[in-house]
């Protein structure tokens, strides 16, 4: 067994690796980790690099790849790239779900038949509360898109980000996602993390190396500790959780992450559910 597989088996690092495909976004969410917006620098990852690193990840023993942003589907070439990546390992792609209006959904056709899951953000069953954080019309666009995506044959998950909801709010959200065709096992609830725009939100939780599960994350700025790590604050990329600037060959940041991870206490990330 390789050192990488041993590190995964022992739980020192995640079996999943992430890419930040880009940093720009059509939305400007109040808690965004990366200060993404239509005005944010794109900082896109080259698709050939993403495909190459995914193949390397599979060879090293990673079992899944995640792709996040920014709004990932602002890049019209992404569906075909995801399809190719998924030939190495299953892929999960995060999206705000607002771009699939009308026949734009057809642009996702290259993904059909591949092991690709789409994770769409939906924070509340209350449209006003949801849109307060994510922007006008967000709720309406998302609840319109999810059933159509499922009907078209895509696997869809829902991620809800926010401060711990009361039981009634949580239940209302679950009733909503079930009504949209999303089973409970495909609903993820995440806290607001005290990084990026979330750094100034009351009730957000700290997210340093002691709280975040080591989950290698590749960006245009290098390799980071976790998808919660390559954050942006006041237009500056945070470097406190930077693992290396080198991303290719992938073995270099992987080995550095393992070395760093094996020197840290374990367990607290599970309590915080920051995965």
């Amino acid at each position: 067994m390789t050192a990488v597989r041993e590190a995964m088996e022992s739980g020192a690092i995640s079996r999943r690796m992430w890419f930040y495909a880009n940093y720009h976004c059509n939305l400007e969410c109040s808690y965004c980790l990366t200060e993404s917006s239509p005005r944010a620098p794109r900082r896109q990852l080259d698709h050939r690099l993403m495909k190459s690193l995914t193949r390397q990840a599979a060879d090293l023993g990673f079992e899944e790849v995640g792709v996040t942003g920014g709004e990932t589907f602002l890049d019209l070439a992404l569906p075909a790239t995801l399809a190719e990546m998924s030939e190495s390992v299953p892929v999960i792609v995060l999206t705000n779900g607002t771009l699939f209006v009308g026949d734009r959904l057809d642009r996702l056709a290259p993904m059909l038949g591949h092991e690709i899951s789409m994770q769409i953000s939906l924070d509340s069953a209350d449209p006003d509360l949801n849109d307060m954080a994510r922007g006008p019309e967000n709720f309406a666009k998302v609840v319109d898109a999810i059933p159509r995506l499922i009907e078209a044959g895509h696997h869809v998950r829902v991620a809800s980000t926010g401060q711990a909801p009361d039981d009634a709010s949580q239940e209302a959200l679950c009733v909503l996602h079930r009504s949209l065709g999303i089973p409970d096992e495909d609903h993820v609830v995440r806290p607001i993390v005290r990084r990026g725009r979330g750094a100034t939100i009351d009730g957000s939780i700290p997210a340093g190396p002691d709280e975040l599960f080591p989950e290698l994350t590749i960006t245009a700025d290098g390799a980071f500790w976790s998808p919660f790590a390559p954050t942006v604050f006041n237009d500056q990329v945070d470097t406190d959780l930077l693992v290396s600037r080198t991303v290719d060959p992938l073995s270099l940041p992987v080995q550095r992450l393992i070395a760093l991870a094996q020197g840290r206490p374990t367990g607290s990330d599970v309590a915080n559910n920051i995965r």
């Binding site: 190396p209 406190d240 693992v243 760093l260």
Partner: peptide, 10 residues
């Protein structure tokens, strides 16, 4: 010049 609070983990 990286400040202490932005120093990479390593």
């Amino acid at each position: 010049l990286i400040a202490a609070e932005q120093a990479p983990v390593s």
